[in-house]
Design a protein around this nucleic acid. Structure first.
Lengths: 206, 206
DNA sequence: ACCTGAACACCGTTCAAGT
DNA sequence: ACCTGAACACCGTTCAAGT
């Protein structure tokens, strides 16, 4: 190992691997140097300090979030398909997405998706400020949902979870409701339901 | 300063102040000790290590998120008022809320709000699984929105921001839409619009 | 141009020692 | 029961010195 000269590329690759496995906190300059078989300070020459290194990883992630391919026959269906695509891409890179988020680059990362949403909203007949509101409402909903969902997964053991909090006495005369709330939510189903409901309502008056 | 004997209460108060001002990363055991005028190690005697200290702060926050007072004449109006109340409370404690989230206590923190939402959804005539879905969809939307919003505020200078990304050529024949997307969103308005639209659609078939 | 080790200023935590 | 300083194992970063 570590015979060939160090390159910016090698540093970024090793750093990305560390972040993917252990999250941003797992990326220390010293561990990274050990991984690369170099002195800690060599890293600074190639990619700058830790902050700049993370910025470079984030930049790469933003560039990767490219292609959006809407499917479906109605604008509403295509909006839902865009939303599902976004969710899938976000969930594949949880740590990196969080870092994009922290650096305030979410808007830029979402630009391709936003353009796709604009097209669908216009196809549904919306114009001007109403169209802009619809696009943003969906965008906020998708990003927000994924953030909430990710947090739930990261902390699997709720103490106490919804399960222990809900008992039938809380929903008088509706044991099915209490039972449902005592069960963990199915995120995929809830996501599609939420996005579809919101989208159809937003596009309705087009 | 720092004449009276150190108490668990004093440690928690000083720690909460540090977190409120500088976020969790701004809370170091050494700064906290300096603030309190004691040795670093005294803190450990009163509240345990840093992790346990943060846990105690989180616990306090969860307990504080109590009263929900729905206003409005229709269930939908009252749901919106609950959502606005939640948003306000979340925005007052951004750092602490993030910590609650990281520790997986969000569900417990939201239990009072969830009960209030259940009441309104039932008042609108929803039952069983459909009622549970509606409650959760609103809950996810509110929390998600606040998370996205908070991130946008934390990083005011997008590089590039939506402003530079959108020019009229992107929305052919609709300069008003392009102009609107080039302007920063009004979060309060977008929030109410989103929640109202989603809620009314969810409650419609009750 | 590229890499190095030493040094600095920070961390959280442990622990034996004080009162 | 409460508080202390010293010590340990970690950090990120700078910098003069090497090739």
């Amino acid at each position: 190992m570590a015979r060939s000269p160090l390159t910016r590329e090698a540093v970024l690759a090793a750093a990305a691997a560390l972040v993917r496995q252990h999250g941003p906190d797992g990326l220390t300059m010293r561990k990274l140097a050990a991984e690369l078989g170099t002195a800690v300070t060599s890293i600074y020459w190639h990619v700058g300090n830790r902050e700049q290194l993370l910025d470079a990883l984030v930049e790469r992630t933003v560039e990767d979030m490219g292609a959006i391919r809407p499917v479906g026959r109605t604008p509403a269906e295509r909006v839902v398909s865009i939303a599902r695509g976004l969710r899938r891409e976000l969930r594949e890179r949880p740590h990196l997405i969080a870092m994009v988020h922290e650096r305030g680059l979410t808007d830029r990362m979402f630009l391709p998706a936003q353009r796709a949403l604009v097209a669908e909203v216009r196809a549904a007949g919306l114009r001007g400020a109403r169209a802009a509101d619809a696009v943003r409402a969906v965008q906020f909903q998708v990003v927000g949902f994924v953030l909430v969902e990710r947090n739930r997964e990261r902390s699997p053991v709720q103490s106490p979870g919804e399960g222990e909090l809900w008992d039938p006495a809380d929903a008088p005369g509706d044991p099915a409701l209490a039972r449902e709330l005592a069960r963990p939510a199915d995120p995929e189903r809830l996501f599609v339901l939420s996005v579809r409901t919101l989208t159809e309502a937003l596009l309705a008056g087009g």
